[in-house]
Design a protein around this nucleic acid. Structure first.
Lengths: 196, 196
DNA sequence: CCATTTTTATTGACTGATCAGTCAATCAAT
DNA sequence: ATTGATTGACTGATCAGTCAATAAAAATGG
């Protein structure tokens, strides 16, 4: 059998395969062998590179977070007003790859794991805090600090809810609708805020 | 060993035990033996009454939905205005039993299963539709129909998001905050609606 | 109100399948 | 020759599900 890859390439292939399999299967009940086969190698090699199943899943989650992070940063850099920054955060949650059934399934698995694994819980905290910080920073330039925190809580929850609903049901909200719903929420919260 | 229960009692004990174990464990990776032991019986008896693990989990999900349904109906009957009806729907999502870590974990498992099991997906559709119908019906008395649909989508997603966030992080939103955030969203959406 | 049959509750002990993880042995590159 | 890539074949554990056997309750008949 020919040599077909080096360590980093194979690790990446395994991570991609893990996302695919989790998405297709809809749960963590995926075997290492299935993931490895999908990635074009034997399960023994998967163990060789990752040490164990937990590491494969954990690194997959990390990859997911990094991708979302990169996409958010890219959009934030192009945004020049606070409102545009909020739009950037919203849009990056609902864009292309992030908003596919398989990715959403993987995020759901991530959420579940955070309930039992400390390491996953910490990873999730990092993500939540970063999202929160991005949103709050922009909001504080648009309203008083106390209101900003309330709006942040609502907006973050709404993003999560729309995201999951989209993944769960084909008839659920699509990307444009989701973005519009969030944007609308923001506009009106800020509008009545100014009236007070 | 003495006889200690009849069929309905034992089924209920197994369902409760399943919720507990899923909540503690944070995943579906719970063995039938663990559930049965927690419910005070052998795993053989669990198989006898439910036929298989899938049925245990499925009936557990059904039970969860029925409980939420009963709680919502009870609150709806006491509500007399459309706004009070919306409050009733919101409050029942965040009340006592429904809003505990274990119950939320079980709901997350439910969401995951809906990705792979048609039966679970149908169950989830029933729940989503009922929630949607309750909210829409009340909203249509407060604003024009098209706006009602937008607000419903936002509100439902926000409820889901707050719910999951509460379960995932101890520092997350508590029940009062969650209710306030939803209520606030509603008030402002309806307020700026009237202005237009 | 007893004796019996039938039904229901209950389990320990078993099985077959599955799966995470290991390892010694190849094969290819450097 | 050394190092890294790669796998098939194996192992030990775990687990869903079965089954035959027991015991208690309920029903039946006298």
């Amino acid at each position: 059998m020919p040599r077909t890859g080096t360590e980093p390439a194979r690790r990446q292939a395994l991570i991609n395969a893990a996302i695919d399999m989790i998405g297709e299967n809809g749960s963590t009940e995926v075997t290492v062998k299935e993931i490895a086969t999908r990635a074009g190698m034997s399960s023994a090699l998967a163990f060789h590179y990752f040490g164990g199943k937990d590491e494969i899943i954990f690194e997959t989650m990390r990859h997911l977070m990094r991708e979302l992070g990169k996409s958010t940063i890219a959009r934030l850099q192009k945004a020049e007003t606070p409102l545009a920054r909020l739009d950037a955060v919203i849009a990056s949650s609902f864009e292309g790859d992030q908003f596919s059934r398989t990715t959403i399934a993987a995020w759901l698995v991530f959420y579940m794991r955070a309930l039992s694994s400390d390491a996953s819980a910490r990873l999730l905290t990092i993500y939540t805090r970063r999202l929160r910080s991005n949103i709050l920073h922009a909001l504080r330039q648009l309203c008083v600090s106390r209101e900003a925190e309330n709006i942040e809580q609502g907006l973050s929850a709404m993003i999560d809810g729309l995201y999951i609903r989209h993944g769960l049901r084909p008839q659920g909200p699509n990307a444009d609708e989701a973005i519009h719903t969030c944007r609308d929420f923001l506009d009106r919260q800020l509008a009545s805020e100014r009236i007070e």
